[in-house]
Simulated assay, not measured.
Amino acid sequence: MGSHVEATSIFEEHRSLLFSVAYRMLGSAADAEDVVQDAWLRWSSADRAQITQPKAYLVRIVTNLAVDTLRSARVQRESYVGPWLPEPILTGPDIAEDAARAESVSLAMLVVLESLTELERAVFILKEVFGFPYGEIAEAIDRSEATVRQLGHRARSHVQARRPRFSADRESRRVVTERFFAASMGGDLNELMQVLAPDVTIWTDGGGKVRAALRPIHGAEKVAAWLIGIGKRPYQGVALEDMRAEVVQINGEPAVLALGNGRPITVVTVEPDASGRIVGIRVIANPDKLVPVAGGIRHTL
C-alpha cells in the first residue's frame, strides 16, 4: 500500500462515506470537509504498510477528528445569536429514495443529534446509520465494547423519545411543502392557517447577521403573523417580488429555497404531522450557512 497513487485511490473510494459520517456528526458541510481533509493528511503520512483495514482506519480518524471538532464547536455555539440550526446541503434523488438514510440526515434529526454527547452521537451514527458492529466502534473511539453498547442504548432511547413524531412519505411531504410555499409567498393568511397545526413551532437561524426571530415562535396564529410580516418589507435588501423561490431537495427532503440578487437568501423545511398539517418549520438565513447551497454542489450521503 506504499504508492501515493494507491493511497489516493483508496482514500477516494471511501471519501463519500467519510464525509457522510463527519456531516452527521457536525451538522456543518464546511466543518465536515475540513475533517475529511485532515483525515487525508493523516492517511497520506501514515505507515500504510501496517494498515490492514483501510476503511476502518479512515472511519476511526474521521470519527475522532469530528468528536474533537464538535467539542470546540459547542463552546462557540454558546454565544450564537438566536436558534442554532444545521447547515443545509443539496442532496440528489438517491438519498430521498432511502427513507432511513434520508431521515438520518434531515434537519429535524440533526437537531435531535445535537442533544447527544459527542460519543453518544458517534456511536449512534456509526451503528444505526452505517451498521458498523460494536466491536469496530469500540476500536474507533477507544472505549470498551460494553461502554459502547451502553452509549448506543442511551443514544437510541434519547433519539426515539425526541425524533420527529411522523415520517410522511416523500410525495406527501412535497405536497405539504408546495402548499406552504404558495401560501407564505402569496401572503395568504387563511391558507396558512389551514396548513399549520395549532401547536406549530418555527425556528429561524439568522446567526445575528440577518433579520430573524431570536427565539422559537409557537402557535399557528403567531407563526402565520410572523411569516406574513416578513414578506411585507424587503428581506436582506430584496423585495418579495424580486425573489425567486423553488422547491428543491435539501438534506433528503423537499425544501423551499429563496434566491435574490443571484444568491440564496433562505432555506425553509417543514415537518408535517400525520394529518398533513405542519408542526415544525425551520428557516436558515445565516449567509455563512448557505454557502454550500450557493455552490450548487449535490452531496451523496
Score class of each variant (00 low, 15 high):
residue 69 T to S: 14
residue 193 M to K: 10
residue 256 V to Q: 11
residue 47 D to G: 01
residue 119 L to H: 10
residue 79 S to N: 12
residue 280 G to F: 08
residue 4 H to C: 11
residue 148 V to P: 01
residue 113 L to I: 03
residue 16 S to K: 14
residue 13 E to C: 06
residue 290 L to S: 09
residue 55 K to M: 13
residue 149 R to C: 01
residue 7 A to V: 08
residue 164 P to C: 04
residue 38 D to I: 05
residue 293 V to D: 07
residue 96 A to W: 03
residue 289 K to S: 07
residue 102 A to P: 01
residue 288 D to H: 12
residue 155 A to K: 05
residue 172 S to V: 09
residue 57 Y to R: 11
residue 3 S to A: 03
residue 42 R to Q: 10
residue 233 R to C: 07
residue 116 L to W: 04
residue 44 S to G: 07
residue 241 E to V: 14
residue 122 A to E: 00
residue 113 L to T: 01
residue 126 L to R: 05
residue 103 E to Q: 08
residue 28 S to E: 03
residue 10 I to P: 01
residue 153 H to V: 10
residue 157 S to D: 09
residue 5 V to H: 13
residue 198 P to A: 04
residue 30 A to P: 04
residue 13 E to F: 09
residue 112 V to N: 05
residue 21 V to N: 07
residue 258 A to L: 12
residue 177 T to S: 06
residue 4 H to I: 15
residue 5 V to T: 14
residue 123 V to M: 03
residue 229 G to C: 04
residue 298 R to W: 09
residue 61 I to F: 00
residue 57 Y to E: 11
residue 96 A to L: 13
residue 1 M to Y: 09
residue 295 G to N: 14
residue 275 S to L: 12
residue 155 A to I: 06
residue 256 V to C: 01
residue 295 G to I: 03
residue 96 A to P: 03
residue 37 Q to F: 08
residue 110 L to K: 04
residue 201 T to A: 12
residue 267 V to A: 08
residue 220 A to H: 02
residue 112 V to L: 07
residue 152 G to L: 01
residue 153 H to R: 13
residue 279 V to S: 00
residue 246 E to W: 05
residue 79 S to Y: 08
residue 203 W to T: 12
residue 146 A to D: 12
residue 74 R to I: 01
residue 45 S to W: 00
residue 41 L to K: 13
residue 144 S to Y: 02
residue 30 A to H: 14
residue 235 Y to K: 10
residue 13 E to K: 15
residue 184 S to D: 09
residue 73 A to D: 14
residue 126 L to N: 07
residue 243 M to Q: 15
residue 1 M to S: 14
residue 230 I to A: 13
residue 283 V to R: 11
residue 211 R to V: 12
residue 55 K to E: 15
residue 5 V to D: 13
residue 199 D to N: 08
residue 176 V to W: 00
residue 281 I to T: 07
residue 18 L to C: 06
residue 289 K to T: 09
residue 28 S to V: 06
residue 63 T to N: 02
residue 16 S to Y: 08
residue 146 A to M: 06
residue 55 K to I: 05
residue 76 Q to P: 00
residue 140 A to D: 00
residue 110 L to D: 02
residue 157 S to F: 03
residue 40 W to K: 10
residue 146 A to T: 03
residue 163 R to I: 08
residue 166 F to W: 15
residue 145 E to C: 05
residue 182 A to M: 04
residue 196 L to K: 02
residue 295 G to S: 11
residue 205 D to L: 08
residue 109 M to Q: 14
residue 59 V to C: 05
residue 142 D to W: 08
residue 56 A to S: 13
residue 240 L to R: 15
residue 40 W to F: 14
residue 286 N to Y: 10
residue 259 L to E: 15
residue 20 S to W: 07
residue 285 A to M: 09
residue 260 G to T: 07
residue 12 E to L: 15
residue 210 V to Y: 05
residue 273 D to T: 04
residue 139 E to T: 11
residue 9 S to F: 06
residue 62 V to W: 04
residue 101 R to L: 14
residue 108 A to I: 03
residue 12 E to K: 15
residue 66 A to R: 04
residue 253 E to S: 09
residue 98 D to C: 00
residue 256 V to G: 00
residue 65 L to C: 11
residue 38 D to C: 00
residue 166 F to N: 10
residue 34 D to H: 13
residue 85 L to G: 01
residue 60 R to G: 15
residue 116 L to T: 02
residue 103 E to L: 02
residue 10 I to D: 03
residue 280 G to D: 11
residue 45 S to K: 05
residue 126 L to I: 07
residue 154 R to S: 09
residue 129 V to A: 05
